[in-house]
Every structure is written in structure tokens, then in C-alpha cells.
Design a protein around this nucleic acid. Structure first.
Lengths: 342, 342
DNA sequence: TTGTACGCGTTATCAC
DNA sequence: GTGATAACGCGTACAA
């Protein structure tokens, strides 16, 4: 049988729905016996009050903003973005609450997205680390569901808080070149991930451009790709260090992967930055704490700005998407000038 | 005026509510003129469809689990717990969604909690890093809202996924003693925080007990307390290092604070672990990556177990709260045996 | 104390 | 194409 309602309970208990409701809401005006009877039936039927009907009846409006993203098992950066969302939301004293949706595959993503618009569970949507097909955009627009993306190139046909991954990769590459390195390797995700999100490809592209500009070669073996995991990055770095001519510098496409490289260097007895320089990407809070050189991409701020912009859209305004401060390399203790010394 | 409904729109536009609904849902059967007219009125009135009513009408049930916590700006551990919640939820293939509530003060906490039960926005609640007054427990029980806490001593009167902070502090203290240290300091939060949550006090208590057992003195200056922030911990550690007789080991009540201490040591030119040993608490994923010795408290697992237990409760079962694996010190590169060498 | 009828704001199904 | 009207499931005055 379908999910029972208070009607079913009332009928089975031989009372009116009013009584059931009173029991549910701990009204004092109900005899202990009746209450007990009703409670028994409720337990028997496994009745659970319908949240939605209850809210409608109680006239309590709820305003939800959905946050949809890849399973953030993979992306530590997500936590910092989420913090930005959260902080902005409370500082602005809105009455919006945050709903968290995580998707495990492309198919699941699509399914969740249609579920979200069909149920109407949220009034607006923040999309992090995921792309949007044309059909999906159309669906969201038809449903009048404002949405903004975070972590995309500044695309034209939907509002994004863009971060230019190509530029970031370029900066990292140029920085290492400026340090005097001539043997520079790349450790990163597969160029297209499960979700067809291409930030790795973008960062790699910028990186390559920097090398090409300076007519620097990038041997095939210096390109190490694999799933976005610490252990994998660790192994990829070991591959590099075992090369007959190992690199003197590594650009890791995320801080987490950079830490994997650092661990590999430690294991190999390599000193950082004396023997090998390592630069990450993200500038996570922890990276700041432990002195990792990294490309800063203003993670928390991206969340804040994302919310602010979404609130604009919800408000009916349509300003152009705001942009984040420029990316920059934050030099710390895992890189240093090479050449004169090394 | 109160929030307009489609009725208001219909009236003002001189059409039936059916038409308004059709416009809202992009039904093809509506003349362009009518549509435009209605859309104008909608814009004029600033009408937004009521999420709740829409859901009721569409017969889409939603099942939400609320997660309420301190602003996780302060507690990095929260992200790992959240990941556990999230993963368990999707692996168990439930149709529950996660709602995130953050509270900024005790008053705000209370306000949010009553809001949550009154609106009935969620069917169950996970409470992280927050305590519960008797009145609050009563309120939740009356509302039939199952709830489980995470990160509390295993209290008797409400279900918690307990972590024994006293024991953890004790383990940290004893570990440093076993390493041969005789000058051991504590860096942690104020013993009672803004939210009257006492994990710092508990960890400190266990730590003190370990010292006392071995008749080790704990000078006043070796107890450095302050707000839960990296920079603060950093400063507190500097205080310690500037003492005429600085400690040879520090127990920091969280990994983040341990990193603050590490930075201070670096600045002072102290080698870790040769000149000073540092142990944290949490065993964050990053701590593993960078080699911080820490007390492992199974953060992600606590989230998983929390969800599993909550689902039991939602299911009407009432098993005793499960317990986590025992706490343990994970020795890495920031501590080492002292005495024979130092 | 208990049962009934109405309202909450939409959507969907009818006649028109 | 458009406008009434009946659900949707629950809370709650109101009458009994």
C-alpha cells in the first residue's frame, strides 16, 4: 500500500482525522486511551506525517537554494566553496536554506537535475564543478529556476562565476619557468573526467602554452595523468622520479595532488625545494598553513560571490556575472629559483 | 502586502488561476498575448510560486534530513563528517536529502531549532558539535523528530555517536610521556566555547590526568588557550617558545591548531620533531598527507555511522547507539622519542 | 473530548 | 484556449 495518510490512520483507529492530528501535535485535549489507540495504529501502519502537506497547512514558507556538485570526496576545494556559500547566506540575513545534492555519475546528474526541477524542492541552484548541456539549461530556464555555476570558464550562455583554468595553468607554468626550471612535469586528472568536466584539460592547456612560448619541450613521460586521488598522484610522482632524467619541478593540478607529489619526494629522499620544486593549484587553507606554493583561485570567495549573484537573479535583476580577482601564484616553501643553485 | 499567490495574479490579470498556472508551467495551450499579459502581472507583483504548495499538488514527497552545526568556518573536521553523511546516504540509496543549518550563537541555535521543528522542514536531525538542553530535547521528542548527535561523550539521555574526548586527551598526553618528554604544553580552545560545547575541556582533562598519573607537573604557562583559529594557535605557540623554559612537546587540541604550532616552530628556527614534538587531534585527511602525528577520531566514519543510526530511528527501531572504533594515536613525523637523544 | 468542514497554494481535469 | 473545480495531506476552528 502507498504511504498511509492520517485519513488511513483515522479510519483504522475508528476516530476522526482531527483526533489523529491532535495526537501528532501533542494536543492536551485528547484522552490518554484515545491517544494510545491512535499511537498504536500509527506505529502499526508505519505512518509518517507528510512534510509538505504539513508545511502548507502551517503556512510556513521555506526557501531553499540547492547546491549540486560532484561527490566531494574528490574535491577538497568544495568544502571551502561551501563555506563561502554558507557564510554569505547568513551574513546577508536571507531566509534561504541550503540543500545539498551530490551526483555520482553523468546519468545520475541528469536524473537529479530533472528531479530537482520536477519536485520544485528549490528556488534556485548553484552548480559546482559540473557542466550543463543545452537541454539541461533549457529545462532549468523553462522551470524558471535561476542557476549559477561556479568553477567554469566565463562562458557566454549561462551565468558562471568563472575561473580561467587555462590562465591558471599558464601562470603556474610561467612561474616555474621564471624560476629557471627546464625540466617541468605535469601531474593531474585525466583530461576529461567522469563528468566531462574539463578543468584538468584547461589547466594543462595553459601550462603547455607557457612552455611553448618559451620553446620548452614537454616530453611525453612528463605528463602523468590519473584519477583525482592523493594516492594516485603519489604514484604518478614516483613514476616521474624514477625517470632517467627526472623533472626538477612539478605542476600538480590540485593541492591535494601536490601533497601526493610531496610525499613521493620525501620517500625518494628528495629535498623540496632544493632537489625538486612543486606547485599546486587551489590555494586551500591547509596549503597556506603548511607552506605549499600554489595558484590561488579564491575558493571561499567564489562561494560568496556565487550566492550574491544568485540572490540578484532571484530578485529579478540581471546584471552581468561578477568576476573574481585575478588568479595568482602564491610562492611559498615548495618552490624556489633553480638554475644558479641547482 | 503579503506574498502574492496565483490567485492575486489571476485577479489582477483578469484571467483564471488555471491560465496563470499554465503560463508558469510553460503549457503550450495559451495564446502569446495572454501569456505576455500574465507574465507582466507576475513581474509587476513580484510573484514567486510557493514551493510547498507546488510540491503538495505535484504529489512529490521530499524527505529531508537536517544537519545542524556550528559555523564550520571554525571546524575543519566538519567537512569530513559531512562527507561521511553524504556518502552513507547515497550508498544506502535512500531518498533523503541533506539540509544544512549553521548557527552563529547560542541564541541563534535555539531559534533555528524551534524554527526547524515548527516548519517541519526535516524528518530527522543530525546535531554536530552542539549540545542540547533538556527543553530542546523535549521539544524534538514532542515533535517526533528523531535526532542523533555526533561528537559527544556517550551521554545517556540522548542518542549520540560518541567520541570520548577525555580518553583522546589522555592518549595524547600518555603518548608524549612515553616518548620521554617532561615539558609538555597544551594549546587549545577556551575550555567552554561560545556554544558551551566542552570538547576542549574534555580533551584537556584527559591530558591532565595522563600527566598527573605520572606525577608530571603542568605549569600554568604551559596551558595556552584561545579562540579556535590557526593564527591564534600560532601566537599561543610563540608564547610557549618564548618561555625561559620552553616545552619540548605540545599537544594541540585540533590538527588545525597543531599546524599553527608547526608554523611557529618553523619561524623560531626550531626543528620538528628534533627540537619540539607536536601532536594534534582529529587526524584530518590532510594531516595524514603531510605527516602530522594526531589522535585519530574517525571523522568520516562518525558521519556514516550517524546516518545509519538515524535511519534506524526513522525506521522505528531503537537499538542502542553504535560506538566508533577506539581512538588511537597515529604517530607520524612531528613527534619522536625524546630523552636519549634531545 | 471528538468529529467535520474548510483553508493552505498549486496542479490537473474537466466542461465550455 | 480558457475558467471553474476537485484533488494533494494536514492543521484547526467550529459544532456536536
Amino acid at each position: 500500500m502507498a504511504r498511509p495518510t492520517i485519513k488511513d490512520v483515522a479510519q483504522k483507529a475508528g476516530v476522526g482525522i482531527g483526533t489523529v492530528s491532535r495526537v501528532l501535535n501533542n494536543s492536551p485535549k485528547v484522552t490518554p486511551e484515545t491517544r494510545k489507540l491512535v499511537l498504536n495504529v500509527i506505529a502499526e501502519l508505519g505512518f509518517k506525517p507528510n512534510t509538505v502537506a504539513r508545511q502548507l497547512s502551517r503556512k510556513t514558507r521555506v526557501h531553499n537554494i540547492g547546491v549540486i556538485t560532484q561527490p566531494f570526496i574528490s574535491y577538497r576545494a568544495f568544502a571551502e566553496r561551501l563555506r563561502g556559500l554558507q557564510l554569505a547566506l547568513s551574513e546577508l540575513e536571507t531566509d534561504y536554506e541550503l540543500m545539498l545534492y551530490t551526483v555520482s555519475s553523468l546519468a545520475h546528474y541528469d536524473e537529479r537535475l530533472t528531479m530537482i526541477v520536477q519536485t520544485g524542492a528549490v528556488e534556485a541552484l548553484i552548480i559546482i564543478d559540473l557542466d550543463l548541456y543545452d537541454e539541461q539549461k533549457a529545462m532549468l530556464r523553462e522551470a524558471n529556476l535561476p542557476f549559477v555555476g561556479i568553477n567554469h570558464l566565463n562562458v557566454q550562455d549561462w551565468p558562471c562565476i568563472g575561473t580561467d583554468n587555462v590562465e591558471g595553468g599558464y601562470l603556474a607554468g610561467r612561474y616555474l619557468l621564471d624560476c629557471g626550471h627546464t625540466r617541468i612535469a605535469y601531474v593531474g586528472d585525466e583530461l576529461i573526467d567522469t563528468f566531462e568536466f574539463i578543468s584538468s584539460a584547461e589547466r594543462f592547456e595553459g601550462f603547455k602554452r607557457a612552455l611553448t612560448e618559451r620553446r620548452m619541450l614537454l616530453p611525453e613521460q612528463y605528463i602523468q595523468l590519473g584519477p583525482h586521488e592523493y594516492e594516485v598522484a603519489h604514484q604518478l610522482a614516483l613514476n616521474l622520479f624514477h625517470l632517467s632524467e627526472p623533472p626538477s619541478a612539478i605542476f600538480a593540478m590540485s593541492d591535494m595532488q601536490a601533497f601526493g607529489c610531496l610525499a613521493a619526494a620525501r620517500e625518494m629522499g628528495l629535498r623540496v625545494p632544493d632537489d625538486v620544486s612543486i606547485i599546486g593549484y587551489d590555494d586551500l587553507e591547509f596549503s597556506r598553513h603548511v607552506g605549499l606554493t600554489s595558484v590561488r583561485q579564491h575558493l571561499e570567495l567564489s562561494g560568496r560571490v556565487g550566492i550574491e549573484y544568485l540572490l540578484c537573479l532571484l530578485n529579478g535583476d540581471m546584471p552581468p556575472p561578477p568576476s573574481l580577482p585575478p588568479l595568482e601564484v602564491i610562492a611559498r616553501q615548495t618552490t624556489r629559483t633553480f638554475g644558479e643553485a641547482g
